[in-house]
């Protein structure tokens, strides 16, 4: 690990000014991802700007039925929040399906959105990886890629975004609020992550010296009937190999409204808009759900060892929407 400076920011302006002044500086949230990567030499910041003492740890209702979540709220606190559990249950479930109790207590909402991929080649500086060292190649494509992307990847990188929380937030049209030297801006989460293209090392639209201050969930009645299902290679403490966040509103056997996002399939949480279009207005039956999943997954491109993900996401979508339908009609 390289030597680094440490600064505990006292105000948002202080933090942003420091990030602006020192290009090698990085924001420190819970440190559960950043510190690991520093130990292995993947990240080598010159300065850590600790943001955990900033007044960004509140969860407050917005005027229009939404919820504003401070960037340093712990993952465990967000999962336990009564309004989240009641009105966005899939978000609480996604958070609780992630990591372990200890990690969730440390992890912040901002850090969770910006956690890096779990591609093993990315995590080891001795290996070629375009995301870590642009132009060095992608070892995963010809190597271990069982848990790599089937949607939206490019030949330059096939890594997935590992977050569970972000999948639910993406389904629910969350908006990220960012403080920058030029002032505050709002970025819809669906526009937050960049497509892979030729620049897998550029992951988000965040400008330099940006600090995430909040994530806002707009009021979304359909989210009250939502669910997050995650499949992983052991029952706990493992990243998803496929996950689905789904919400539906059903009336007279028809799908009135739907939200659907997939996890562990792409470089970003994957909002399944084609599937949503296929769902809305159709009968709430498994055949519709399967057709909707297929509509989204027709764009999938698989590698030799990750083809199972297409079947997995299809089955998970059908199972999750079917469960929600049964609940709604009960």
């Amino acid at each position: 690990m390289k030597e680094f400076g440490y600064h505990r920011a006292s105000t948002v302006d202080d933090a942003v000014a420091l990030l602006d002044r020192e290009p090698g500086a990085r924001v420190l949230g819970g440190g559960t991802n950043l510190v690991d990567l520093m130990k292995s030499g993947v990240e080598e910041p010159s300065l850590l700007v600790d943001v955990r003492e900033l007044p960004l740890d509140l969860i407050e209702p917005t005027g229009n039925g939404g919820l504003r979540i401070g960037a340093t709220v712990a993952n465990s606190d967000l999962a336990a929040h009564p309004e989240v559990r009641r009105r966005w249950p899939a978000l609480a479930q996604a958070l609780l399906a992630g990591a372990s109790g200890q990690v969730r207590n440390m992890a912040t909402v901002g850090g969770n959105l910006l956690q890096r991929t779990r591609c093993a080649y990315f995590a080891n500086p001795a290996m070629p990886c375009n995301k870590r060292v642009p132009g060095s190649g992608c070892a995963a494509r010809g190597g271990e890629h069982r848990n790599h992307a089937v949607l939206g990847w490019s030949e330059h990188c096939v890594a997935t975004h590992p977050s569970d929380m972000a999948v639910a937030l993406t389904a629910f049209d969350a908006v990220v609020t960012v403080a920058t030297p030029a002032g505050e801006t709002d970025i819809p989460l669906s526009d937050f992550y960049l497509p892979v293209g030729r620049t897998p090392h550029r992951e988000t639209v965040l400008p330099a010296a940006a600090l995430i201050t909040a994530v806002t969930l707009p009021g979304l009645p359909v989210a009250a009937r939502s669910r997050y299902r995650k499949v992983r290679e052991r029952a706990s403490f493992a990243f998803a190999i496929g996950s689905v966040a789904a919400a539906v509103e059903i009336a007279d056997g028809q799908v009135r409204d739907a939200r659907l996002a997939f996890g562990a399939v792409a470089s970003r949480p994957w909002r399944a808009r084609s599937a949503e279009r296929a769902l809305i207005g159709s009968p709430a039956v498994p055949e519709t759900f399967a057709a909707a999943a297929d509509a989204e997954l027709s764009a999938a491109k698989t590698l030799p060892d990750n083809g199972y993900k297409v079947a997995l996401i299809r089955e998970l979508t059908v199972a999750t929407l079917s469960e929600l339908t049964r609940e709604t009609s009960r």
Partner: peptide, 14 residues
């Protein structure tokens, strides 16, 4: 990884 000749999950997360 056969090409690189090394284990790729030599940690307790992988």
């Amino acid at each position: 990884d056969r090409t690189l000749g090394t284990q790729v999950n030599a940690d307790l997360a992988g």
